[in-house]
Design a protein around this nucleic acid. Structure first.
Length: 490
RNA sequence: GGCCCUAUCGUCUAACGGUUAGGACAUCAGGUUCUCAUCCUGAAAAUCGGGGUUCGAUUCCCCGUGGGGCUGCCA
C-alpha cells in the first residue's frame, strides 16, 4: 500500500495534520508499504519560507519517517524516489499537459471572467438566496474567440465542466456510501490565471502518478471529492480509495483554532511533551483499538490501527488526557534513558550534573515524581547545592515532630548514622538502622524520617529519606545533620 | 441560503437489535507510604427530541434540533 501526507507549506505542522499523517503512515507501515511526503505549494502567496523544514522536523520528532518523497537528510531537505519531483511547483508542466487533455476532451473550458465579475455574480446570487455558483458565461464561447483572446494575452482560467445530470457516488473508507448531485457542484477552477494548478487538479495528477492507494485527508475535503472523482474519470485513471478523517475541535466544538488552543506540534515539543506520549494521544483521538489498551507505542499502533475503527464525528482536542499519558510514558522510560533525556535540562541549571557519574542513580529517585523534564532541576537541587532547611521545616506538627523533641531526634540521628560503616551505607541498612532507632526511643518512624529528609533536602517534599541519604553518602548526610543541629541551636 | 457530514458520561470512547450501557482521563471519597508523587479501592457521571420498523432499539429508517465542513483563480 502506498499512502501520502501532502501538506501545504503555509506555516507549522498542525496537530490535525499530524493526525492525518500518522494515519497514513500507520497504514503504509502495516502493509509493509510506502509512506510518501509531498509538498503542495501551488499557492505562491501563502507559501512560507522554512515551513517545509519545520514540518519535516516535527514529523521526525514524532517518529514518522517518510520512505519516499520530501524528507530531511542530515538536516537538509531532499527528495527521494522514482516518481518525483515531489514538490508541486516543480511539476507544473505535467499539470498543464493534463489540463490541455481535459480541454481537448471537452471536460474543461476556458473562462475569462474577472475576479471582480465573479464577486459581483456571487453577491447577486446570494441576494436572490441562490447557491453561489459559476454561471457558465464562458462555456458558450466559440473556439475562435477563445483562441483570439488567449493570444491577445487576456487573463483566463480553466474550469471543470461538471455534468449537471449525473450523480457522483463513491464509498468512503470511513464514512461509507457517499453521493452528490452534479447540479450542486460548481465548475471548479483547475488552472489559475498564473498558470499554476489548483489543489483539485494537482493532487489528482500526483496521486495518480505516485500510485497512491488510499488518500487520507481531513473532512474539509469531503464535499470536493466528487470533483476529484470526475477528474480521475475524465483523465481515464483509476481513482484511489478515499478516507476522510473527522476534524479536531476546540472546547466549544468549533473547528480547532489557534485562538483557542495550541495547534502547532512545535508548541507541544516546546512544552516538553514526549513524542511517545503525544503520538499516543493523537492516535487515540478519533480511533480506538476496541480493547481497553490505552498505552501504545508506534509499533503497537502499526499493528492495531485500522480505518474501520475510526470515528466519524469530530473530536475535541482536550489535552487533559495527554498529561496523564505523558506521566505514563515518563515512568515507562528505562532509567538510563530517562537520565539521558533529563540531563540537558538539569545541566542547564547545574552544570556539574553533566560530569556526575551517579546521575542515573539520582534521577531514578525522581522518575515517578515528574510529569515534565522541566520539573527535574528543582527536585534534584539538594544534590548540587547545599540545602537551606528552616526550623519550621525540620519540625512538623503533622509528623509529630515538635520543636521540643527536634534537638533530641537530630542528635540521635547523627550519632546513630555516624555508627553505620561506610561500606554498609545502603538503603536497606539505613532502613533497618533507623527503624531500630525509632523503636528504641518510642518514636514513630515518621518522627525520625521527616527531620532527616528535611535536613538533607531542605524541601517540603522530595524523594524518601532512605533513598536520599543513600544517594548522598555518609559524609554528606552527617554534615547536613550537623548543619541542621547548629541551625536549631542558634 | 444551498449541498454534504455528524450526534453515548464534562472529555476521548466501547457496545455493530437483547448488557445492571463498559473502559480511560478529569472530578470526588477512602487506602498504602516518612513528605510529595506513584500505586490501589470506591463513588458520582451519558444514549439530543419526536415518530416509525421490530417481540425488543444506543444500534435500522424518517422528521426535527444541535454541532461541523464546503460553498475562493486557498489548501
Amino acid at each position: 500500500m502506498r499512502t501520502r501526507f501532502a501538506p501545504s507549506p503555509t506555516g507549522y505542522l498542525h496537530v490535525g495534520g499530524l493526525r492525518t499523517a500518522l494515519s497514513a503512515y500507520l497504514l503504509a507501515k502495516q502493509s509493509k508499504g510506502t509512506f510518501i511526503v509531498r509538498i503542495e505549494d501551488t499557492d505562491r502567496e501563502r507559501s512560507v519560507p522554512d515551513a517545509v523544514e519545520n514540518m519535516l522536523t516535527a514529523l521526525h520528532w514524532a517518529g514518522i519517517h517518510p520512505d519516499e518523497g520530501v524528507m530531511l537528510e542530515k538536516g537538509l531537505i531532499t527528495q527521494k524516489g522514482t516518481r518525483g519531483p515531489y514538490i508541486q511547483s516543480e511539476r507544473l508542466a505535467l499539470y498543464r499537459h493534463h489540463a490541455q487533455e481535459l480541454l481537448k476532451s471537452g471536460h474543461a473550458y476556458v473562462c475569462f471572467c474577472s475576479p471582480k465579475r465573479l464577486e459581483k455574480m456571487r453577491t447577486e446570487q446570494e441576494a436572490r438566496k441562490q447557491a453561489p455558483m459559476y454561471d457558465r458565461t464562458c462555456i458558450k464561447l466559440k473556439d475562435e474567440e477563445v483562441q483570439r483572446r488567449i493570444t491577445s494575452g487576456e487573463p483566463h482560467v480553466l474550469r471543470l465542466k461538471v455534468p449537471r445530470n449525473e450523480i457522483i457516488a463513491y464509498e468512503d473508507e470511513i464514512r461509507g456510501p457517499m453521493s452528490f448531485q452534479g447540479h450542486t457542484i460548481d465548475d471548479q477552477v483547475l488552472l489559475k490565471s498564473d498558470g499554476f494548478p489548483t489543489y483539485h487538479l494537482a493532487h489528482v495528477v500526483d496521486d495518480h502518478f505516485m500510485d497512491i492507494s488510499v488518500v487520507i485527508r481531513g473532512e474539509e475535503w469531503l464535499s470536493s471529492t466528487p470533483k476529484h472523482l470526475l477528474l480521475f474519470q475524465y483523465l481515464g485513471w483509476k481513482p484511489p480509495r478515499y478516507a476522510h478523517v473527522p476534524l479536531l475541535l476546540n472546547k466549544d466544538r468549533t473547528k480547532l483554532s489557534k485562538r483557542q488552543s495550541a495547534v502547532s506540534v512545535e508548541e507541544y515539543v516546546q512544552k516538553g511533551y514526549l513524542p511517545e506520549a503525544f503520538v499516543n494521544f493523537i492516535a487515540l483521538l478519533g480511533w480506538n483499538p476496541g480493547t481497553t489498551q490505552e498505552i501504545f507505542t508506534l509499533e503497537d499502533l502499526i499493528e492495531a490501527f485500522s480505518l474501520d475503527r475510526m470515528q466519524k464525528a469530530g473530536a475535541i482536542f482536550d489535552t487533559e488526557k495527554l498529561d496523564w499519558l505523558q506521566g505514563q510514558w515518563i515512568r515507562r522510560l528505562p532509567a538510563a534513558e530517562f537520565a539521558k533525556r533529563v540531563l540537558p535540562v538539569v545541566a542547564e541549571k547545574y552544570p556539574p550534573a553533566s560530569r556526575d557519574k551517579d546521575f542515573t542513580a539520582k534521577t531514578r529517585l525522581i522518575q515517578e515524581r515528574v510529569t515534565f523534564f522541566s520539573e527535574a532541576p528543582a527536585l534534584l537541587s539538594f544534590f548540587y547545592e547545599e540545602p537551606t532547611p528552616s526550623v519550621d521545616l525540620l519540625a512538623n506538627a503533622k509528623q509529630k515532630v515538635s520543636h521540643e523533641i527536634l534537638p533530641k531526634i537530630l542528635e540521635e540521628l547523627s550519632n546513630t548514622l555516624d555508627g553505620v560503616l561506610t561500606d554498609e551505607w545502603t538503603e536497606s541498612v539505613l532502613s533497618e538502622t533507623l527503624k531500630k532507632l525509632a523503636e528504641g526511643n518510642g518514636w514513630k518512624i515518621g518522627q525520625v524520617l521527616w527531620p532527616l529528609r528535611a535536613a538533607l533536602t531542605g524541601l517540603p517534599y522530595s524523594p524518601g529519606a532512605y533513598e536520599v541519604a543513600a544517594a548522598l553518602g555518609k559524609d554528606v548526610t552527617i554534615a547536613r545533620l550537623e548543619a541542621a543541629r547548629r541551625l536549631i541551636t542558634q
